[in-house]
Computed example of a mutant assay.
Amino acid sequence: MGKLEGKVAVVTGGNSGIGLATAKRFVEEGAHVVITGRREKELKEAAAFIGRNVTTVTGDVTRLEDLDRLYAVVKEKHGHIDVLFANAGWGEVVPLEAATEAHFDKTFDLNVKGLFFTAQKALSLFKDGGSIILNSSVANVLGVPTFTVYAASKAAVRSFARGWTMELKDRNIRVNTVSPGPIETPALENAGLTPEQAKRAADQFVSQVPLGRRGKPEEIAAAVVFLASDESSYITGVDLAVDGGMAQV
């Protein structure tokens, strides 16, 4: 028996990186998983990688009609949700003096608005006693130059977990955040850095990590499985840092 045997889990941004590693681990632990992402080709490749017990729904979490379509598929196929990993997010390196309204809006639309409505629209399908895990970042407690809009958006995610813990306590739905440190994903390249700049940034991050390396997506997935499972049944409202000690010392 896996830790999530027979559970129904939804993972946003499940087509790559942390989301994909977590969706695969959920299935290995016995769950049926619905993953969503904006790129259909990557979603199909992700489903092939996961191999079984996975449904894909192409969509953008910043579009409320796409979220409605996601949950319509979940309702039709499974009827309920036990676990939500609200993982979809984005960041871009922009100094304060160069930040534009478009940069601000794009970051908050995905990391804050999209995550908010991802959780809100899931509630009608959620079983009492379920688990919601929000993907934040160690940036929510660190001062990270040129990454301040991203950091603020992730601090909002942390705040959601606190408030929703209290709002959903009567349904025994636990809400927690996981806060990764530097992880081996394409995130730095996607943040607008060249390969050379991304390597320098990664090396700089590693110099701040007591364990002396970047983490792997599978290491975040293991933490999310813990928060999704009954092994964390007395844990709610926490921010679990999986950061090699980066923000802890």
Score class of each variant (00 low, 15 high):
43 L>Y: 00
45 E>P: 00
48 A>R: 05
49 F>K: 04
52 R>T: 10
53 N>A: 08
55 T>I: 10
56 T>R: 04
57 V>L: 07
58 T>N: 01
59 G>V: 02
63 R>V: 05
64 L>R: 09
69 R>S: 11
69 R>H: 03
70 L>Q: 00
71 Y>V: 00
78 H>C: 03
78 H>I: 01
79 G>E: 05
80 H>M: 03
92 E>L: 15
93 V>P: 11
98 A>R: 15
98 A>I: 11
99 A>S: 12
100 T>E: 02
100 T>L: 00
100 T>F: 06
101 E>C: 05
103 H>Y: 15
107 T>L: 10
109 D>E: 05
111 N>I: 04
114 G>S: 03
115 L>W: 08
118 T>S: 14
123 L>G: 06
123 L>Q: 10
123 L>T: 14
125 L>R: 04
128 D>W: 04
129 G>C: 01
134 L>H: 09
136 S>Q: 06
136 S>F: 10
136 S>A: 13
137 S>K: 08
140 N>K: 09
140 N>V: 12
141 V>C: 09
142 L>C: 07
142 L>S: 11
142 L>T: 09
143 G>E: 12
143 G>M: 13
143 G>Q: 07
144 V>T: 13
144 V>I: 12
145 P>N: 12
147 F>L: 15
151 A>R: 04
152 A>S: 14
153 S>V: 03
153 S>R: 06
155 A>E: 13
156 A>P: 01
159 S>I: 03
159 S>H: 12
160 F>D: 04
165 T>R: 15
170 D>C: 08
